[in-house]
Design a protein around this nucleic acid. Structure first.
Lengths: 253, 253
DNA sequence: CAATCTTTGTGCACGCGTTCACAAAGACAT
DNA sequence: ATGTCTTTGTGAACGCGTGCACAAAGATTG
Protein backbone atom coordinates (compact mmCIF):
# COMPACT_ATOMS: atom_id res chain seq x y z
CA UNK A 1 0.00 0.00 0.00
CA UNK A 2 1.23 3.44 -0.95
CA UNK A 3 4.59 2.32 -2.31
CA UNK A 4 5.11 5.84 -3.53
CA UNK A 5 6.86 5.91 -6.85
CA UNK A 6 6.73 2.47 -8.44
CA UNK A 7 9.38 3.30 -10.98
CA UNK A 8 12.26 2.90 -8.57
CA UNK A 9 15.38 1.49 -10.26
CA UNK A 10 16.52 -1.14 -7.78
CA UNK A 11 13.64 -3.34 -6.69
CA UNK A 12 14.98 -3.96 -3.21
CA UNK A 13 16.29 -0.45 -2.65
CA UNK A 14 13.87 0.57 0.08
CA UNK A 15 12.03 -2.74 0.02
CA UNK A 16 12.57 -3.88 3.58
CA UNK A 17 9.68 -6.21 4.46
CA UNK A 18 7.39 -5.08 7.25
CA UNK A 19 8.03 -8.26 9.18
CA UNK A 20 11.73 -7.51 9.11
CA UNK A 21 11.26 -3.92 10.25
CA UNK A 22 9.23 -5.18 13.17
CA UNK A 23 12.13 -7.39 14.25
CA UNK A 24 14.93 -4.86 13.90
CA UNK A 25 14.20 -3.31 17.31
CA UNK A 26 14.55 -6.76 18.84
CA UNK A 27 17.95 -7.25 17.29
CA UNK A 28 18.95 -3.78 18.32
CA UNK A 29 18.07 -4.46 21.92
CA UNK A 30 20.03 -7.69 22.00
CA UNK A 31 22.99 -6.01 20.32
CA UNK A 32 22.94 -3.11 22.74
CA UNK A 33 23.12 -5.54 25.62
CA UNK A 34 26.13 -7.23 24.00
CA UNK A 35 27.71 -3.87 23.35
CA UNK A 36 27.43 -2.93 27.01
CA UNK A 37 29.24 -6.13 27.88
CA UNK A 38 31.92 -5.14 25.37
CA UNK A 39 31.38 -8.22 23.23
CA UNK A 40 33.13 -7.44 19.92
CA UNK A 41 31.46 -9.88 17.54
CA UNK A 42 28.47 -12.19 17.54
CA UNK A 43 27.31 -15.02 15.29
CA UNK A 44 23.86 -15.18 13.77
CA UNK A 45 23.16 -18.20 15.91
CA UNK A 46 23.98 -16.47 19.19
CA UNK A 47 22.23 -13.27 18.31
CA UNK A 48 19.16 -15.12 17.11
CA UNK A 49 18.91 -16.97 20.39
CA UNK A 50 19.25 -13.72 22.32
CA UNK A 51 16.53 -12.11 20.24
CA UNK A 52 14.28 -15.16 20.38
CA UNK A 53 14.12 -15.86 16.67
CA UNK A 54 15.36 -18.34 14.10
CA UNK A 55 18.94 -17.81 12.91
CA UNK A 56 18.03 -18.19 9.25
CA UNK A 57 15.40 -15.54 9.65
CA UNK A 58 17.87 -13.20 11.27
CA UNK A 59 20.40 -13.64 8.48
CA UNK A 60 17.76 -13.01 5.85
CA UNK A 61 16.60 -9.94 7.74
CA UNK A 62 20.13 -8.57 7.81
CA UNK A 63 20.57 -9.36 4.14
CA UNK A 64 17.91 -6.76 3.39
CA UNK A 65 20.04 -4.12 5.08
CA UNK A 66 23.16 -5.12 3.19
CA UNK A 67 26.07 -7.49 3.58
CA UNK A 68 27.40 -6.56 6.95
CA UNK A 69 28.97 -9.50 8.74
CA UNK A 70 32.06 -11.57 8.03
CA UNK A 71 31.83 -15.19 7.03
CA UNK A 72 33.47 -17.50 9.46
CA UNK A 73 33.37 -14.84 12.17
CA UNK A 74 29.99 -13.24 12.57
CA UNK A 75 28.80 -9.67 12.93
CA UNK A 76 30.63 -6.72 14.42
CA UNK A 77 28.42 -5.66 17.30
CA UNK A 78 29.14 -1.92 17.31
CA UNK A 79 28.86 -1.71 13.58
CA UNK A 80 25.52 -3.45 13.53
CA UNK A 81 24.16 -1.33 16.34
CA UNK A 82 24.96 1.72 14.31
CA UNK A 83 23.56 0.36 11.05
CA UNK A 84 20.27 -0.77 12.57
CA UNK A 85 19.91 2.46 14.51
CA UNK A 86 20.40 4.40 11.35
CA UNK A 87 17.97 2.22 9.42
CA UNK A 88 15.32 2.68 12.08
CA UNK A 89 15.93 6.41 12.13
CA UNK A 90 17.15 6.45 15.72
CA UNK A 91 20.20 8.56 15.04
CA UNK A 92 17.96 11.57 15.12
CA UNK A 93 15.79 12.93 17.88
CA UNK A 94 12.06 12.19 17.83
CA UNK A 95 9.96 14.52 19.94
CA UNK A 96 6.83 12.69 21.09
CA UNK A 97 3.60 14.11 22.46
CA UNK A 98 1.37 12.13 24.79
CA UNK A 99 -2.30 13.08 24.77
CA UNK A 100 -4.48 11.95 27.64
CA UNK A 101 -2.63 12.05 30.95
CA UNK A 102 -4.61 9.56 32.96
CA UNK A 103 -3.14 6.55 34.69
CA UNK A 104 -1.71 5.11 31.52
CA UNK A 105 -0.51 8.38 30.04
CA UNK A 106 1.29 9.25 33.24
CA UNK A 107 2.83 5.80 33.39
CA UNK A 108 4.15 6.18 29.86
CA UNK A 109 5.50 9.64 30.63
CA UNK A 110 7.42 8.15 33.52
CA UNK A 111 8.60 5.20 31.50
CA UNK A 112 12.33 5.32 31.04
CA UNK A 113 12.36 3.39 27.81
CA UNK A 114 11.73 6.54 25.79
CA UNK A 115 14.81 8.61 26.29
CA UNK A 116 17.16 5.65 26.03
CA UNK A 117 16.61 5.52 22.29
CA UNK A 118 16.03 8.56 20.15
CA UNK A 119 12.66 9.38 21.66
CA UNK A 120 11.97 12.32 23.91
CA UNK A 121 8.71 13.23 25.61
CA UNK A 122 8.25 16.76 24.31
CA UNK A 123 4.77 17.46 25.59
CA UNK A 124 1.96 16.13 27.76
CA UNK A 125 -1.53 17.18 26.78
CA UNK A 126 -4.83 16.68 28.57
CA UNK A 127 -8.38 17.95 28.22
CA UNK A 128 -8.86 18.52 31.93
CA UNK A 129 -8.29 22.23 32.71
CA UNK A 130 -7.57 21.39 36.34
CA UNK A 131 -4.61 19.36 35.20
CA UNK A 132 -2.94 22.12 33.21
CA UNK A 133 0.33 23.12 34.80
CA UNK A 134 0.59 20.06 36.98
CA UNK A 135 4.00 18.48 36.49
CA UNK A 136 4.02 14.82 35.49
CA UNK A 137 7.39 13.15 35.16
CA UNK A 138 8.93 16.58 35.39
CA UNK A 139 6.91 18.01 32.54
CA UNK A 140 4.03 20.42 32.94
CA UNK A 141 0.76 19.17 31.46
CA UNK A 142 -0.72 21.50 28.85
CA UNK A 143 -4.30 21.92 27.82
CA UNK A 144 -5.84 20.48 24.68
CA UNK A 145 -6.78 23.95 23.46
CA UNK A 146 -3.12 24.58 22.67
CA UNK A 147 -2.60 21.24 20.96
CA UNK A 148 -2.02 22.74 17.57
CA UNK A 149 0.59 25.19 18.74
CA UNK A 150 2.36 22.64 20.95
CA UNK A 151 2.74 20.17 18.11
CA UNK A 152 4.01 22.76 15.67
CA UNK A 153 6.41 24.49 18.02
CA UNK A 154 8.04 21.25 19.10
CA UNK A 155 8.11 19.72 15.66
CA UNK A 156 6.26 16.65 16.91
CA UNK A 157 5.58 14.06 14.24
CA UNK A 158 4.79 11.13 16.53
CA UNK A 159 1.77 11.24 18.80
CA UNK A 160 0.68 8.84 21.52
CA UNK A 161 -3.01 8.65 22.33
CA UNK A 162 -3.95 7.49 25.82
CA UNK A 163 -7.34 9.13 26.10
CA UNK A 164 -10.66 7.44 26.83
CA UNK A 165 -12.02 5.74 23.70
CA UNK A 166 -14.65 8.39 23.13
CA UNK A 167 -12.11 11.15 22.66
CA UNK A 168 -9.57 9.20 20.64
CA UNK A 169 -10.82 9.92 17.12
CA UNK A 170 -11.22 13.61 17.79
CA UNK A 171 -7.74 13.86 19.29
CA UNK A 172 -6.39 11.88 16.39
CA UNK A 173 -7.94 14.28 13.89
CA UNK A 174 -6.47 17.25 15.66
CA UNK A 175 -3.04 15.68 15.87
CA UNK A 176 -3.08 14.89 12.17
CA UNK A 177 -4.29 18.39 11.34
CA UNK A 178 -1.40 19.78 13.36
CA UNK A 179 1.12 17.77 11.39
CA UNK A 180 1.50 14.46 13.19
CA UNK A 181 2.01 11.61 10.74
CA UNK A 182 2.57 8.68 13.09
CA UNK A 183 0.26 7.66 15.89
CA UNK A 184 0.54 5.10 18.62
CA UNK A 185 -2.98 4.42 19.84
CA UNK A 186 -3.67 2.92 23.26
CA UNK A 187 -7.37 3.68 23.17
CA UNK A 188 -9.62 0.74 22.26
CA UNK A 189 -10.95 2.39 19.12
CA UNK A 190 -10.51 1.99 15.40
CA UNK A 191 -8.95 5.23 14.23
CA UNK A 192 -9.50 6.43 10.70
CA UNK A 193 -6.73 8.56 9.31
CA UNK A 194 -5.92 10.03 5.90
CA UNK A 195 -3.48 8.40 3.53
CA UNK A 196 0.12 8.75 4.58
CA UNK A 197 -0.48 8.62 8.31
CA UNK A 198 0.69 5.51 10.14
CA UNK A 199 -1.25 4.13 13.05
CA UNK A 200 -0.16 1.36 15.34
CA UNK A 201 -2.39 0.20 18.13
CA UNK A 202 -1.63 -1.33 21.47
CA UNK A 203 -4.67 -2.98 22.92
CA UNK A 204 -4.42 -4.66 26.25
CA UNK A 205 -7.92 -6.05 26.10
CA UNK A 206 -7.35 -7.73 22.75
CA UNK A 207 -4.13 -9.34 23.91
CA UNK A 208 -5.88 -10.79 26.93
CA UNK A 209 -8.71 -12.13 24.81
CA UNK A 210 -6.28 -13.86 22.50
CA UNK A 211 -4.61 -15.45 25.50
CA UNK A 212 -8.00 -16.51 26.82
CA UNK A 213 -8.77 -18.24 23.56
CA UNK A 214 -5.65 -20.37 23.74
CA UNK A 215 -6.11 -20.90 27.44
CA UNK A 216 -9.59 -22.24 26.85
CA UNK A 217 -8.33 -24.47 24.09
CA UNK A 218 -5.68 -25.91 26.41
CA UNK A 219 -8.23 -26.54 29.14
CA UNK A 220 -10.70 -28.15 26.74
CA UNK A 221 -8.03 -30.45 25.34
CA UNK A 222 -8.56 -33.06 28.04
CA UNK A 223 -11.89 -32.61 29.85
CA UNK A 224 -14.52 -31.27 27.49
CA UNK A 225 -12.99 -32.85 24.41
CA UNK A 226 -16.21 -34.54 23.32
CA UNK A 227 -18.59 -31.92 24.60
CA UNK A 228 -16.83 -29.07 22.84
CA UNK A 229 -15.16 -30.68 19.90
CA UNK A 230 -18.37 -31.12 17.99
CA UNK A 231 -20.17 -28.01 16.73
CA UNK A 232 -22.89 -27.18 19.23
CA UNK A 233 -25.79 -27.06 16.81
CA UNK A 234 -25.35 -23.89 14.70
CA UNK A 235 -28.15 -22.07 12.98
CA UNK A 236 -31.02 -24.35 13.77
CA UNK A 237 -32.25 -25.58 10.39
CA UNK A 238 -35.91 -25.76 11.33
CA UNK A 239 -36.74 -23.30 14.08
CA UNK A 240 -35.01 -20.33 12.52
CA UNK A 241 -34.01 -17.50 14.81
CA UNK A 242 -35.29 -14.72 12.56
CA UNK A 243 -34.06 -11.17 12.45
CA UNK A 244 -36.05 -10.14 15.48
CA UNK A 245 -33.53 -9.80 18.28
CA UNK A 246 -34.38 -12.87 20.31
CA UNK A 247 -31.67 -14.29 22.53
CA UNK A 248 -29.21 -16.91 21.38
CA UNK A 249 -31.50 -19.81 22.15
CA UNK A 250 -28.81 -22.18 20.99
CA UNK A 251 -26.80 -22.63 24.14
CA UNK A 252 -25.80 -26.27 24.32
CA UNK A 253 -26.16 -26.46 28.09
CA UNK B 1 2.28 -25.77 16.59
CA UNK B 2 1.07 -28.25 19.17
CA UNK B 3 -2.11 -29.16 17.35
CA UNK B 4 -2.76 -31.82 19.93
CA UNK B 5 -4.29 -34.93 18.42
CA UNK B 6 -3.93 -34.92 14.65
CA UNK B 7 -6.50 -37.61 14.14
CA UNK B 8 -9.44 -35.27 14.52
CA UNK B 9 -12.30 -36.21 12.20
CA UNK B 10 -13.17 -32.83 10.73
CA UNK B 11 -10.09 -31.01 9.47
CA UNK B 12 -11.43 -27.57 10.31
CA UNK B 13 -12.86 -28.54 13.65
CA UNK B 14 -10.51 -26.50 15.86
CA UNK B 15 -8.47 -25.07 13.01
CA UNK B 16 -9.15 -21.38 13.47
CA UNK B 17 -6.23 -19.44 11.96
CA UNK B 18 -4.24 -17.29 14.34
CA UNK B 19 -4.87 -14.22 12.22
CA UNK B 20 -8.60 -14.80 12.61
CA UNK B 21 -8.37 -15.28 16.36
CA UNK B 22 -6.52 -11.98 16.61
CA UNK B 23 -9.39 -10.23 14.85
CA UNK B 24 -12.26 -11.78 16.80
CA UNK B 25 -11.87 -9.32 19.69
CA UNK B 26 -12.16 -6.51 17.17
CA UNK B 27 -15.42 -7.85 15.83
CA UNK B 28 -16.65 -8.47 19.33
CA UNK B 29 -16.02 -4.88 20.30
CA UNK B 30 -17.84 -3.54 17.27
CA UNK B 31 -20.72 -5.94 17.85
CA UNK B 32 -20.99 -4.98 21.49
CA UNK B 33 -21.31 -1.35 20.50
CA UNK B 34 -24.10 -2.27 18.07
CA UNK B 35 -25.76 -4.38 20.72
CA UNK B 36 -25.83 -1.46 23.14
CA UNK B 37 -27.56 0.58 20.49
CA UNK B 38 -30.08 -2.26 20.12
CA UNK B 39 -29.24 -2.84 16.47
CA UNK B 40 -30.73 -6.25 15.65
CA UNK B 41 -28.75 -7.28 12.56
CA UNK B 42 -25.70 -6.13 10.69
CA UNK B 43 -24.26 -6.89 7.28
CA UNK B 44 -20.68 -8.00 6.77
CA UNK B 45 -20.01 -4.74 4.99
CA UNK B 46 -21.20 -2.57 7.87
CA UNK B 47 -19.50 -4.61 10.53
CA UNK B 48 -16.28 -4.74 8.57
CA UNK B 49 -16.20 -0.98 8.29
CA UNK B 50 -16.84 -0.62 12.01
CA UNK B 51 -14.03 -3.04 12.80
CA UNK B 52 -11.69 -1.50 10.27
CA UNK B 53 -11.21 -4.56 8.09
CA UNK B 54 -12.13 -5.90 4.66
CA UNK B 55 -15.61 -7.38 4.39
CA UNK B 56 -14.39 -10.46 2.55
CA UNK B 57 -11.91 -11.09 5.31
CA UNK B 58 -14.62 -10.75 7.91
CA UNK B 59 -16.88 -13.22 6.14
CA UNK B 60 -14.05 -15.70 5.81
CA UNK B 61 -13.21 -15.25 9.47
CA UNK B 62 -16.79 -15.99 10.48
CA UNK B 63 -16.89 -18.97 8.18
CA UNK B 64 -14.29 -20.62 10.41
CA UNK B 65 -16.67 -20.34 13.34
CA UNK B 66 -19.58 -21.80 11.41
CA UNK B 67 -22.36 -20.60 9.21
CA UNK B 68 -24.00 -18.03 11.36
CA UNK B 69 -25.58 -15.26 9.35
CA UNK B 70 -28.49 -15.21 6.97
CA UNK B 71 -28.04 -14.55 3.27
CA UNK B 72 -29.81 -11.48 2.11
CA UNK B 73 -30.04 -10.16 5.67
CA UNK B 74 -26.76 -10.29 7.53
CA UNK B 75 -25.75 -11.40 11.00
CA UNK B 76 -27.82 -11.40 14.14
CA UNK B 77 -25.91 -9.12 16.50
CA UNK B 78 -26.78 -10.74 19.81
CA UNK B 79 -26.22 -14.18 18.45
CA UNK B 80 -22.80 -13.29 17.10
CA UNK B 81 -21.79 -11.59 20.33
CA UNK B 82 -22.55 -14.77 22.15
CA UNK B 83 -20.82 -17.05 19.66
CA UNK B 84 -17.64 -15.02 19.53
CA UNK B 85 -17.60 -14.61 23.29
CA UNK B 86 -17.90 -18.33 23.66
CA UNK B 87 -15.23 -19.01 21.06
CA UNK B 88 -12.82 -16.66 22.81
CA UNK B 89 -13.61 -18.22 26.15
CA UNK B 90 -15.12 -15.07 27.62
CA UNK B 91 -18.21 -16.76 28.99
CA UNK B 92 -16.13 -17.84 31.91
CA UNK B 93 -14.26 -15.81 34.48
CA UNK B 94 -10.51 -15.35 34.09
CA UNK B 95 -8.71 -14.33 37.25
CA UNK B 96 -5.60 -12.35 36.32
CA UNK B 97 -2.55 -11.55 38.43
CA UNK B 98 -0.41 -8.49 37.80
CA UNK B 99 3.19 -8.71 38.94
CA UNK B 100 5.20 -5.52 39.29
CA UNK B 101 3.09 -2.67 40.66
CA UNK B 102 5.04 0.32 39.37
CA UNK B 103 3.57 3.07 37.28
CA UNK B 104 2.46 0.75 34.53
CA UNK B 105 1.24 -2.05 36.77
CA UNK B 106 -0.87 0.40 38.76
CA UNK B 107 -2.25 1.91 35.57
CA UNK B 108 -3.30 -1.52 34.33
CA UNK B 109 -4.87 -2.35 37.67
CA UNK B 110 -6.95 0.81 37.41
CA UNK B 111 -7.82 0.15 33.81
CA UNK B 112 -11.51 -0.49 33.40
CA UNK B 113 -11.15 -2.61 30.30
CA UNK B 114 -10.53 -5.72 32.35
CA UNK B 115 -13.72 -6.29 34.20
CA UNK B 116 -15.93 -5.41 31.27
CA UNK B 117 -15.08 -8.68 29.59
CA UNK B 118 -14.48 -11.90 31.44
CA UNK B 119 -11.28 -10.72 33.11
CA UNK B 120 -10.90 -9.93 36.78
CA UNK B 121 -7.84 -8.59 38.56
CA UNK B 122 -7.47 -11.25 41.23
CA UNK B 123 -4.13 -10.20 42.69
CA UNK B 124 -1.44 -7.53 42.62
CA UNK B 125 2.07 -8.69 43.42
CA UNK B 126 5.23 -6.69 43.99
CA UNK B 127 8.74 -7.37 45.25
CA UNK B 128 8.90 -4.24 47.39
CA UNK B 129 8.07 -5.16 51.02
CA UNK B 130 7.12 -1.55 51.74
CA UNK B 131 4.37 -1.87 49.20
CA UNK B 132 2.73 -4.92 50.72
CA UNK B 133 -0.70 -4.07 52.04
CA UNK B 134 -0.99 -0.82 50.15
CA UNK B 135 -4.27 -0.75 48.27
CA UNK B 136 -4.03 -0.08 44.53
CA UNK B 137 -7.28 0.16 42.62
CA UNK B 138 -8.99 -1.17 45.71
CA UNK B 139 -6.83 -4.26 45.94
CA UNK B 140 -4.10 -4.79 48.52
CA UNK B 141 -0.69 -5.43 47.03
CA UNK B 142 0.88 -8.69 48.12
CA UNK B 143 4.51 -9.64 48.35
CA UNK B 144 6.36 -11.76 45.84
CA UNK B 145 7.23 -14.31 48.51
CA UNK B 146 3.64 -15.47 48.49
CA UNK B 147 3.39 -15.62 44.70
CA UNK B 148 3.01 -19.35 44.56
CA UNK B 149 0.21 -19.46 47.10
CA UNK B 150 -1.59 -16.48 45.58
CA UNK B 151 -1.63 -18.01 42.11
CA UNK B 152 -2.81 -21.39 43.35
CA UNK B 153 -5.47 -20.12 45.71
CA UNK B 154 -7.03 -17.86 43.11
CA UNK B 155 -6.75 -20.31 40.27
CA UNK B 156 -4.88 -17.79 38.18
CA UNK B 157 -3.87 -19.05 34.77
CA UNK B 158 -3.12 -15.70 33.14
CA UNK B 159 -0.30 -13.53 34.44
CA UNK B 160 0.67 -9.99 33.50
CA UNK B 161 4.31 -9.00 33.96
CA UNK B 162 5.02 -5.30 34.46
CA UNK B 163 8.30 -5.58 36.32
CA UNK B 164 11.62 -4.04 35.34
CA UNK B 165 13.31 -6.07 32.59
CA UNK B 166 15.85 -7.57 34.97
CA UNK B 167 13.22 -9.31 37.05
CA UNK B 168 10.93 -10.43 34.24
CA UNK B 169 12.42 -13.86 33.50
CA UNK B 170 12.59 -14.81 37.15
CA UNK B 171 9.01 -13.73 37.75
CA UNK B 172 7.98 -15.57 34.62
CA UNK B 173 9.60 -18.77 35.85
CA UNK B 174 7.86 -18.51 39.19
CA UNK B 175 4.50 -17.83 37.56
CA UNK B 176 4.87 -20.84 35.31
CA UNK B 177 5.98 -23.01 38.20
CA UNK B 178 2.87 -21.91 40.10
CA UNK B 179 0.59 -22.97 37.25
CA UNK B 180 0.24 -19.96 34.99
CA UNK B 181 0.07 -20.99 31.34
CA UNK B 182 -0.53 -17.64 29.64
CA UNK B 183 1.60 -14.56 30.10
CA UNK B 184 1.22 -11.02 28.90
CA UNK B 185 4.66 -9.44 29.07
CA UNK B 186 5.16 -5.68 29.22
CA UNK B 187 8.82 -5.91 30.16
CA UNK B 188 11.26 -5.37 27.29
CA UNK B 189 12.73 -8.84 27.56
CA UNK B 190 12.60 -12.04 25.59
CA UNK B 191 10.99 -14.57 27.88
CA UNK B 192 11.78 -18.23 27.55
CA UNK B 193 9.02 -20.55 28.66
CA UNK B 194 8.40 -24.28 28.49
CA UNK B 195 6.25 -25.86 25.82
CA UNK B 196 2.56 -25.23 26.29
CA UNK B 197 2.88 -21.78 27.82
CA UNK B 198 1.73 -18.87 25.69
CA UNK B 199 3.49 -15.53 25.82
CA UNK B 200 2.34 -12.32 24.21
CA UNK B 201 4.41 -9.24 24.51
CA UNK B 202 3.47 -5.59 24.46
CA UNK B 203 6.48 -3.43 23.82
CA UNK B 204 6.05 0.30 23.67
CA UNK B 205 9.62 0.93 22.64
CA UNK B 206 9.39 -1.44 19.67
CA UNK B 207 6.18 0.16 18.45
CA UNK B 208 7.77 3.60 18.54
CA UNK B 209 10.82 2.38 16.67
CA UNK B 210 8.66 0.90 13.95
CA UNK B 211 6.86 4.21 13.65
CA UNK B 212 10.19 6.03 13.52
CA UNK B 213 11.29 3.84 10.64
CA UNK B 214 8.28 4.77 8.54
CA UNK B 215 8.48 8.36 9.65
CA UNK B 216 12.07 8.57 8.47
CA UNK B 217 11.14 6.96 5.20
CA UNK B 218 8.40 9.52 4.67
CA UNK B 219 10.76 12.39 5.43
CA UNK B 220 13.45 11.04 3.13
CA UNK B 221 10.98 10.60 0.29
CA UNK B 222 11.40 14.20 -0.89
CA UNK B 223 14.59 15.79 0.48
CA UNK B 224 17.28 13.16 0.88
CA UNK B 225 15.97 11.04 -1.96
CA UNK B 226 19.32 10.83 -3.75
CA UNK B 227 21.50 11.01 -0.69
CA UNK B 228 19.73 8.19 1.07
CA UNK B 229 18.36 6.10 -1.72
CA UNK B 230 21.71 4.64 -2.70
CA UNK B 231 23.43 2.28 -0.29
CA UNK B 232 25.98 4.38 1.66
CA UNK B 233 29.04 2.26 0.99
CA UNK B 234 28.57 -0.95 2.98
CA UNK B 235 31.45 -3.13 4.14
CA UNK B 236 34.29 -1.23 2.63
CA UNK B 237 35.90 -3.64 0.16
CA UNK B 238 39.48 -2.44 0.62
CA UNK B 239 39.94 -0.93 4.08
CA UNK B 240 38.21 -3.66 6.02
CA UNK B 241 36.85 -2.76 9.39
CA UNK B 242 38.19 -5.78 11.23
CA UNK B 243 36.75 -7.35 14.34
CA UNK B 244 38.43 -4.85 16.67
CA UNK B 245 35.68 -2.60 17.89
CA UNK B 246 36.45 0.53 15.94
CA UNK B 247 33.60 2.94 15.33
CA UNK B 248 31.31 2.81 12.32
CA UNK B 249 33.57 4.90 10.11
CA UNK B 250 31.04 4.59 7.33
CA UNK B 251 28.80 7.55 8.02
CA UNK B 252 27.94 9.08 4.66
CA UNK B 253 28.04 12.63 5.93
C1' DC C 1 -45.54 -19.33 -7.23
C1' DA C 2 -42.13 -17.08 -9.95
C1' DA C 3 -38.96 -13.39 -10.38
C1' DT C 4 -35.82 -10.27 -8.43
C1' DC C 5 -32.70 -8.60 -5.24
C1' DT C 6 -29.57 -8.70 -1.37
C1' DT C 7 -25.95 -10.77 1.13
C1' DT C 8 -23.53 -14.72 2.58
C1' DG C 9 -20.04 -18.40 2.06
C1' DT C 10 -16.10 -19.96 -0.46
C1' DG C 11 -13.04 -21.62 -4.48
C1' DC C 12 -9.11 -19.75 -6.40
C1' DA C 13 -5.09 -17.16 -7.28
C1' DC C 14 -1.59 -14.33 -5.63
C1' DG C 15 1.89 -12.39 -2.64
C1' DC C 16 4.37 -12.29 1.66
C1' DG C 17 6.97 -14.54 5.17
C1' DT C 18 9.38 -18.55 6.86
C1' DT C 19 12.46 -22.26 6.67
C1' DC C 20 15.68 -25.42 4.61
C1' DA C 21 19.83 -26.39 2.78
C1' DC C 22 23.93 -25.33 0.48
C1' DA C 23 27.43 -22.87 -2.12
C1' DA C 24 30.57 -19.07 -1.53
C1' DA C 25 33.60 -16.45 1.39
C1' DG C 26 36.77 -15.73 4.38
C1' DA C 27 39.55 -16.89 8.82
C1' DC C 28 42.92 -19.81 10.53
C1' DA C 29 46.27 -23.56 10.87
C1' DT C 30 49.96 -26.08 8.90
C1' DA D 1 50.31 -21.46 -0.36
C1' DT D 2 47.17 -24.91 0.40
C1' DG D 3 43.65 -27.05 2.96
C1' DT D 4 40.28 -27.15 6.54
C1' DC D 5 36.74 -25.24 9.17
C1' DT D 6 33.33 -21.89 10.41
C1' DT D 7 29.69 -18.91 9.30
C1' DT D 8 27.38 -15.96 6.16
C1' DG D 9 24.21 -14.91 2.35
C1' DT D 10 20.64 -16.63 -0.55
C1' DG D 11 18.01 -19.63 -4.04
C1' DA D 12 14.10 -22.35 -3.77
C1' DA D 13 10.13 -24.61 -1.80
C1' DC D 14 6.41 -24.33 1.15
C1' DG D 15 2.56 -22.60 3.88
C1' DC D 16 -0.33 -19.00 5.53
C1' DG D 17 -3.11 -14.97 4.90
C1' DT D 18 -5.57 -11.88 1.81
C1' DG D 19 -8.70 -10.38 -1.60
C1' DC D 20 -11.39 -11.16 -5.77
C1' DA D 21 -15.29 -12.64 -7.76
C1' DC D 22 -19.13 -15.50 -8.10
C1' DA D 23 -22.47 -19.11 -7.19
C1' DA D 24 -25.81 -20.47 -3.78
C1' DA D 25 -29.25 -19.22 -0.41
C1' DG D 26 -32.81 -17.02 1.26
C1' DA D 27 -35.77 -12.86 1.79
C1' DT D 28 -39.01 -10.04 -0.46
C1' DT D 29 -42.19 -8.42 -3.90
C1' DG D 30 -45.66 -8.77 -7.45
Amino acid sequence: MATGRTHRPATRSRGIPEATVARLPLYLRALTALSERSVPTVSSEELATAAGVNSAKLRKDFSYLGSYGTRGVGYDVEYLVYQISRELGLTQDWPVAIVGIGNLGAALANYGGFASRGFRVAALIDADPAMAGTPVAGIAVQHTDDLDRIISENGVSIGVITTPPGAAQQVCDRLVAAGVTSILNFAPTVLSVPEGVDVRKVDLSIELQILAFHEQRKAGEDATAEDEGAPPMRATPTGRKGPDGDMPAVMPA
